[in-house]
């Protein structure tokens, strides 16, 4: 692959982890590697991009406008000048917004939900998982470069390459008129306690089986005992019992902890794709038919309100 670009959004902790994962992956393709960086930026952040393999950074600084339409226009212009072969995005909100607009702007198809990207000469094959990860689908492009791909978080592991500081080129955010007129008037962040869901060694996740919002207390208590992060199915996020930031699955976070404890989770396809690569999976549920059993190392048919308090007690007595 002659030239690969990776879109990387700035988060509170610096360059988005999924961006660093994609830079690491793209190093294996050979050729030129650049980051399209959206955020305030700093020498430290640029250095992190360099350390993960980017020799060049195109830096876009946002204003109070929702940056997506104008970032897509900026990237389309850059692509017109530099003719990259492959442009990679992560499966996050901002990435999807920009990738989708870019695709329509350039008239290029886009492959989403990638868990593997293979490059053979100039040809790119993208793999994604369907049926809750039971089946793999390989898809290729039937058009000319640049090829656009959106990959899932944690499909690849971020590793530094020892690369030095990249060359940084500042890119103006063009005025795209009405399309770009959405404005961010206020931001609200939830305060999260305990380890981060995506990074925790142990995750204790709850589903509708906890019965009610109050049922989450025992999940919190167990997580505290284990130093674990708490997760949730979409069913209890939609019910308003826990915030969206805890959602694991297709439309939530992807986790790969050492141990995943799922309590009162049936294991719908859309949940499984977010956690099935955990090293050890323990599930507690009531109906023997729950599909989560298919991927569990230990399946317990029982009442979580009986099993978990005893587990907490046993852990306290150690």
């Amino acid at each position: 692959m002659a030239t690969t670009w990776v879109f990387v959004e700035e988060t509170e902790e610096g360059p988005a982890t999924v961006g660093l994962e994609l830079l690491t992956k793209a190093r294996a393709f050979g050729g030129e590697l650049a980051a399209l960086y959206l955020g305030a930026g700093s020498d430290e952040h640029f250095a992190a991009l360099g350390a993960h393999g980017a020799s060049k950074v195109f830096h876009m600084a946002p204003s109070d406008l929702l940056p997506t339409a104008s970032a897509a226009a900026a990237i389309a212009d850059l692509a017109g000048q530099h003719s990259p072969d492959l442009i990679l995005f992560g499966l996050t909100y901002t990435d999807r917004d920009i990738a989708g607009r870019l695709s329509a702007r350039m008239g290029k198809t886009i492959l989403s939900n990638a868990t593997e990207i293979s490059v053979d000469g100039g040809a790119v094959t993208v793999t994604n998982e369907i049926f809750g990860g039971m089946t793999l689908v390989d898809t290729t492009f039937e058009s000319d470069a640049p090829y656009l791909v959106i990959a899932r978080a944690k499909a690849f592991v971020a590793e530094e390459s020892g690369g030095g500081a990249p060359e940084v080129e500042s890119v103006a955010m063009p005025d795209v008129g009405h399309s770009g007129s959405a404005r961010v008037t206020a931001s609200h962040a939830e305060r999260l306690e305990g380890p981060k869901l995506e990074e925790a060694a142990i995750v204790v996740a709850a589903g509708r089986g906890i019965g009610a919002e109050e049922g989450f207390a025992v999940i919190n208590e167990l997580a505290m005992k284990l130093g674990a992060a708490t997760g949730a199915t979409r069913a209890i996020v939609d019910a308003g019992w826990v915030p969206y930031s805890k959602q694991v699955g297709q439309t939530g976070k992807t986790v790969k902890p050492d141990v995943y404890i799922a309590a009162g989770v049936s294991g719908a396809m859309q949940h499984l794709v977010g956690m099935k690569d955990s090293k050890v999976i323990i599930a507690i549920y009531k109906d023997e038919e729950a599909p989560i059993l298919g991927i569990s190392d230990l399946g317990i048919v029982g009442d979580l309100h009986k099993v978990l308090p005893k587990l907490i007690e046993a852990l306290s007595n150690r």
Partner: peptide
């Protein structure tokens, strides 16, 4: 958003 929500 990943950490909460924005008013847009």
């Amino acid at each position: 958003t990943q950490t909460g929500y924005d008013e847009v």
